[in-house]
Design a protein around this nucleic acid. Sequence first.
RNA 1: GGCCCGUUGGUCAAGCGGUUAAGACGUCGCCCUUUCACGGCGGAGUGACGGGUUCGAUUCCCGUACGGGUCACCA
Length: 491
Amino acid sequence: MKIRTRFAPSPTGFMHVGNLRTALYEFLTAKHEGGDFILRIEDTDQERFVEGATDVIYNTLKTAGITHDEGPDIGGDFGPYVQSERLSMYKPYAEQLVKEGKAYYCFCTKERLEELRASAKEGEVVGYDRHCRNLSEEEVKKNLDAGIPYVIRQKAPLEGESTYHDLVYGDITIPNEELDDQILIKADGFPTYNFANVIDDHTMGITHVVRGSEYLSSTPKYNALYDAFGWEIPTYIHLPLIMGKTVDENGETTVSKLSKRHGSTGFEDLVKDGYLPEAIINYIALLGWAPAGEYENREIFTMDELIKAFDIKGISKSPSVFDYDKLLWINAEYIKAMDDDTFIAHAKPFFDKYGISDDKYPLLIEILKPRITKFTEIEEKLAFLADYPDFDLALFEHKKSKSTRETSIDALEAATKILEGTDWTREAISGAMTDLAASKEVKNSVIMWPVRIAAAGVAVTPGGCAEVLILLGKEESMRRINKALGRLKGV
RNA sequence: GGCCCGUUGGUCAAGCGGUUAAGACGUCGCCCUUUCACGGCGGAGUGACGGGUUCGAUUCCCGUACGGGUCACCA
């Protein structure tokens, strides 16, 4: 049978990488076996409705390269794919269970439930006291006729234990007394997430339920529902959580399930920060899963390779901490491997800020590609082009380059003369400076260092002396070098 | 607190009873060099603890500790 997995997010307007990774693994689980990946929007909570939130989901999946085979936007044979459009189908299922004596109407008020929780003693299992579980038919009918609001709850098993199998965690056993009489239909007539989830998964033919391990202990409730309907329980694949670090006011670092409070771990935030979608996917694929066989020890994967290499056996059980450093490294690897046109497409907005003409692109690609980890760094790296402050003259003193203020004055005086008559090409400038060093019998750096510093006004530049001068242009370079020379000489 | 799950270096992790306990990020050092990088080479750094089982445990079992998750008319 063809594998079918699903991604079932709620439209909250925000998708952090934990959700994204769940979607990724669901996608990979299906695609590795040639199965289908379905997108379903779970919007049964009207109170939390956020305008435009579904677009965030579509856009994220699209830019992440996680393509669904069925979904609200593209249709499919099991639609509709938005829960709010399927509302009419849930209640009959619940009613059916009531008729069969597997569920019941509950008329308890929220206030009563709150009191119940508040009065629970230390160490007691907090949960519903099953007050309405055994109401007589007459009482139920009376309440119904009186129009008292009600919810429908499932009768959970009272004793014994429930065991199920998970492909990652193995057999999980939970005492049944931990299981609550969960609500299936809320007072507003909407299904609860858990209930809608089961109905939808079954009616949509989902074969493999892939989700975060926070569902590990509530899965028996889901299974109780499948059993009540006599439906086949899907294959479970629970994923270890992605953790985020937070530092409290005492400087204590704690890790916890990734959420909004962990800063910019939203997919869109990361992209805005300069991380490439492919790099993010690559990174999170490796968070909680390790490739094996011919792919063992590999760090860089295309989506197609992930599909080929993905194996549930490689999923780990323990939670993993999101590490920006490694993401950054992967991002840099993607940039280094990028072809020039793609590189320019990403870099152009930053080049344009400095009014850089495209004849300089080849040079910029060469010097920038190996040394940026994010495209957003370009702005800062090229800042010297637009900004030439009265920098600290101590910059001319550089031990490694064997430069002092005195050698710098000497070098700059000689260099300006030669540069005036030099063709403004990289080779010519570099050659002229090398020749100058040779004629003075000093290291190249004794010439190159001060010229570069004088022209750039900062110690760190992308590229060396010749590259900096080319980027600046002859006129500006000469102006800056002369100015620096004047300052050095105290004129 | 009850229940569930987990625990290999700072982080991601391989391993599945016998290994000098892989690899990657980070970190440190050296080399290259016209700065910073890139690149190359090298170093430090790990099986939570205590009991078993076994000729032999990182690997299996049991406790303890620690960490995480979960206990909604939220999803």
